[in-house]
Structure formats: structure tokens, C-alpha cells
Nucleic acid binder design. Structure first.
Length: 415
RNA sequence: GCGAUCGUAGCUCAGUUGGUUAGAGCGCCGGUUUGUGGUACCGGAGGUCGGGGGUUCGAGACCCCUCGAUCGCCCCA
């Protein structure tokens, strides 16, 4: 199968074609339609950035930065990194282009991301996300708007069944710091009972112990102090506005006080849309508020919220799509009619009708090949008993005046 | 990074306890038949059995290594 001398695809990359591409394209098109309804502007951003853009903002100790980035030196010796996520690059673009003048700015984008991970169902080294961000909006209404948009997107894709919105707050930075300290204290006390993984997490990312799947970790994680004990009044009020906004918009949600986000920059609202239909890769859309990120990057204090969703994961949930049918298959059943067939095809295409020509290979089999593409109409050009014959036949029971009149206009017929 | 399963024509797969020139269906190309029709029949092209090494008189089948896919762990979207 894999022949010698034929290059193979890089591990974890995909060549998306056929039905998979139909689903993929459907997700992107639906996103683009929905983001217009919410008046988000499209942005196209570079696929690589200076390494520091990601390393500093995501957190040096996160797995994404410490072992998953595709980083390399370019010819001038600068360290560059293929984007492992969108948010940091968008924040950078916001600052370098002076987009403060447009604040609050609602941005949407999509494209490839790169992470050096072990490939698995719904997990690739080059994967694709759709992404929505609101930058320069401190109000909880921004969080609500983003969540309502996500909810509508999933509904329009027809995949809201079995997908639940899990919501949490991480509080402001003082809250998060106090909670984190209390968690570390709690876990230190039970360190000996924790799994090996979780003992490591205690050093690197203690919040992650909360959603550990190890049975031996569960009692300790479940008895850990809750964020609610540490929430400042402002942070609690903020979260209350988000939840009441969701209720007002009729978006179903579940509080998950153990929900934690992997990247360091999140504050306040954190959320994931989760399904049980994708095995281990259950998170289909995730995000939250990252008020401190832009300031950390050297810009002015700028509140922001956003989310991203994996296009491949969404596409896997989408039901089989009916692909749009070809309008007309033009068949030259005789070699002497081939150039006229080409003329007819051009006339139809210029008239806005999707058309394919069948004028190669065995004349006897051209018609059969045309039938197999399941077109709406078949136009047949033949020579019978020395006479030219031509006909247009509908394959279903539908009529189409536009196609009929383009065919009946015999400009393509010579002599 | 760790564990498990898998890898035979373009595609989906058979290949019996290791035994002569590796098979089918679909697809592709050609022919005959039919003659306004996705017909039937005949023929053809296309495989270093993922790659490398080993065991054996003999390996697609067994062993080791390697690459890739899949499913978990981890991480995350």
C-alpha cells in the first residue's frame, strides 16, 4: 500500500476530502453565517508568531508550552512558533494594530492550529478551530453574548443533543490565587494518597487534580475546598449576571465547580460544551474570560472573553449531509458530437448551471458514467442513422425552466 | 511521553495448524450484448503482503526493531 518513494503525510495531519470535507465545510460555513448574525468581524491572522507570544501568555509550565509547541528558528535566528491556539495571537494583533480604537471589538476567525501530541480520535497535530473573541468588554453581557452564540451555532449544526454547557467561575486574580493556595494546602495534606500523575500535577498544575479521572484521586478532589468560599463580592456578582443572562436567553447550562481551564490566562467565566459521543475528546467548544492577558503582553489593561471549538470534533457530530447534486451531465455518445458537447457545457456553466461533461473513454459507457453521478438532468448528444439527435431528460420529476431554456437555445449546435 | 489492537490491489476485505506462479467484490480500462439506457457476459491493467532485520528447506502468516493508523492514559478544542 504505502509504496516506496511516495512521500507520506506527516503524522497527525489529515487530507480532508469527500464526505469529511463536506462536513468540515458545513461547520465553517455555518459558523460564518452565525457570526454575522451576532455582528462579529472576520480577521485573518498569521499561522506563526514569535515564540514569546505563546510562551508567556499561556503559561510556561502548561503542557501546551512546555512540550507541545512546534517551535523553530527561521533563517535569521529568530524563534518562531506555529500557533497552538488563537487567543494569544489575536491579543498580539489587537495591540500591534491599535485595534483599541474599535473596542469593544468582536472578532471571529478560523484556521489551522498545531500541537505536538499523540494523535487520537478527534485529536490531530494539525487541527482546525473556529474562534470568537470580544476584546475590550468588561461586562458580563459579553460573556453571555458569546455563550448564546455558541449555543445557537450548535443548534444550527443540529448537534446540540447530548451536548451540555458546563459553566464555572475562576474568580478574579485575587480569588484565583487564594483558591489555588488553599487547594495546594489541601492536596499537600493528602499527597501520599494521590496518584503519581496527580503528585506531578501538584507541582505543575494543581487545579488539574480537580478533574482527575483516577479513582484514588476522586475522594481527595471531591473534598477539596470550593471556589465559592473564596469568591470576592465582585466576582460573585459577575458570575450571577452571567448565569441570569443565560437564563434570560434560554440557554441551558450546568454549574461545574470542578471545571478548570488548562491555560493560565483565564479569569472569571470558564466554560466547556461537552459531549459523550466522542470518547476521550469530549470537549467540543471551550473558552472563558482572560482579562489579564493583554496587559501581561505589555498593553493597557483590557478585559476580554472568547471561545474556540474544534472543527473536526464538530464535524464528527454532524449528521450525514446530502451533497448538492450536479445540475446537468452532458454526454457525447458519439465522437462526432464531442466539440458540440463542450460548447453546450460552456453555455450551461456561463448560465450559472453546474455541469459535467462525459466525452472521454468508450462511447458506449459514457452514459452509464453520467448516470452514476446522479445528476438532476442528463443531456445526451448522439448520432443515429446518420442523424444528429439530442435530448434533455430530468432524472427526478422536477422541472427547471432555466436549464431547459439554456438547453433549448441552440447556439451550441453547429450546422 | 505510557499502554493496547491493527497494517494484504485505487477502495472494502479473504488468505485455513508457515508449503508450489497471492485471491474476491467494487472501481478503472477495453470488447461483445442491449439500444434511450445505471443490463449481462468476456478480457485487461494494477500488489517488492507498511518498511528493515531474524527464525526456517520454505514466511503474507512466527520473533525483534521501525513507521503509520485506531482506541485508552495524559493533555486539550
Amino acid at each position: 500500500m504505502a509504496k516506496h518513494n511516495i512521500p507520506s503525510a506527516i503524522r497527525g495531519t489529515q487530507d480532508i476530502f469527500g464526505e469529511d470535507q463536506e462536513r468540515f465545510g458545513h461547520v465553517v460555513e455555518t459558523f460564518d453565517r452565525v457570526r454575522r448574525l451576532y455582528n462579529f468581524k472576520r480577521a485573518e491572522l498569521p499561522v506563526f508568531e514569535a515564540t514569546g507570544v505563546f510562551a508567556r501568555s499561556l503559561g510556561e509550565s502548561t503542557d501546551v508550552v512546555s512540550k507541545e509547541m512546534y517551535s523553530f528558528e527561521d533563517r535569521s535566528g529568530d524563534s518562531l512558533t506555529l500557533r497552538p491556539e488563537f487567543t494569544a495571537g489575536i491579543a498580539r494583533a489587537y495591540l500591534t494594530n491599535g485595534w483599541q480604537q474599535h473596542a469593544p471589538l468582536k472578532l471571529a476567525t478560523h484556521g489551522p492550529l498545531f500541537r505536538y501530541e499523540r494523535p487520537q480520535k478527534g485529536r490531530y497535530r494539525q487541527f482546525h478551530q473556529i474562534d470568537a473573541e470580544i476584546i475590550g468588554a468588561a461586562e458580563p453581557q459579553a460573556d453571555v453574548e458569546l455563550l448564546v452564540m455558541a449555543d445557537q451555532l450548535l443548534k444550527e449544526l443540529g448537534i446540540d443533543q447530548g451536548v451540555t454547557l458546563q459553566l464555572n467561575t475562576l474568580g478574579d486574580s485575587a480569588t484565583r490565587a487564594a483558591w489555588r493556595t488553599a487547594l495546594v494546602d489541601h492536596f499537600e495534606k493528602h499527597k501520599g494518597e494521590l496518584s503519581e500523575d496527580s503528585q506531578n500535577r501538584l507541582e505543575t498544575n494543581p487545579l488539574r487534580i480537580l478533574d482527575s479521572k483516577e479513582a484514588q484521586d476522586r475522594p481527595i478532589a471531591d473534598s477539596a475546598p470550593d471556589i465559592d468560599e473564596f469568591l470576592s463580592d465582585d466576582a460573585a456578582a459577575f458570575f450571577a449576571s452571567v448565569t441570569s443572562g443565560l437564563n434570560a436567553a434560554n440557554v441551558a447550562w450546568q454549574r461545574n465547580s470542578r471545571l478548570v481551564r488548562g491555560l493560565d490566562y483565564y479569569r472569571h467565566t470558564a466554560f466547556e460544551f461537552v459531549t459523550d459521543r466522542l470518547g476521550a475528546q469530549g470537549t467540543v467548544l471551550g473558552g472563558g474570560r482572560y482579562d489579564g492577558l493583554i496587559q501581561n503582553m505589555g498593553g493597557p489593561a483590557t478585559p476580554a472573553v472568547g471561545w474556540a471549538a474544534g472543527i473536526e470534533r464538530l464535524a464528527m457530530l454532524v449528521d450525514t449531509l446530502q451533497t448538492p447534486k450536479l445540475d446537468v451531465a452532458v454526454v457525447a455518445e458519439n465522437r462526432d458530437r464531442e466539440s458540440e458537447a463542450m460548447a453546450l457545457v460552456s453555455q450551461l456553466r456561463r448560465g450559472g448551471v453546474s455541469t459535467e461533461i462525459f466525452a472521454t473513454g468508450s462511447p458506449k459507457k459514457r452514459y452509464n458514467r453520467a448516470v452514476k453521478t446522479s445528476p438532476r438532468f442528463i443531456a445526451s448528444l448522439d448520432v443515429r442513422d446518420g442523424e444528429k439527435t439530442q435530448g434533455l431528460s430530468a432524472q427526478g420529476d422536477e422541472a427547471d425552466d432555466r436549464i431547459t431554456s439554456l438547453f433549448d437555445n441552440r447556439a451550441w449546435l453547429k450546422g
